[in-house]
């Protein structure tokens, strides 16, 4: 990986941390549990890496197998996370 790519990546990381902190500090305490489960769900974005690992080649290898398990774990995270968040948010009424 060339240094330019690394620096762009680090720049994005730092800026996103600050943007995230700004957004999250505006979430009221009432919604902190849905915030946790919802942010939990988006951390399942690791599924992207899992898909690429599972499908990296036509031949079955240890990478395929590990990737397959990563897909399972990430899907649990994504689906479960969004569904509990939805369940909770539906309960908040005026």
């Amino acid at each position: 990986m060339d240094t330019g790519t690394i620096i762009i990546g680090l720049t994005i990381f730092v800026l996103a941390c600050f943007a995230g902190a700004e957004l999250i500090s505006k979430v009221p305490p009432t919604l902190h549990t849905p915030l946790m489960s919802g942010s939990n769900a988006i951390s399942g974005i690791a599924i992207v890496g899992a898909l690429l690992a599972t499908g990296h080649s036509e031949t079955f290898s240890s990478m395929t197998l590990i990737g397959f398990f990563a897909v399972i774990f990430a899907s649990i995270n994504v689906v479960g996370g969004y569904m509990v968040t939805r369940r909770m948010l539906q309960m908040f009424k005026k």
Binding site: A46, G49, A53, A70, F73, N77, G80
Partner: peptide, 20 residues
């Protein structure tokens, strides 16, 4: 769920190590 997310990241990294 969070543990599953951690596991997924770790597994993706492992898969990269085991890859071509």
């Amino acid at each position: 769920f969070n543990g599953c997310g951690g596991a997924a990241s770790a597994l993706v990294a492992m898969a990269e190590f085991r890859g071509p």
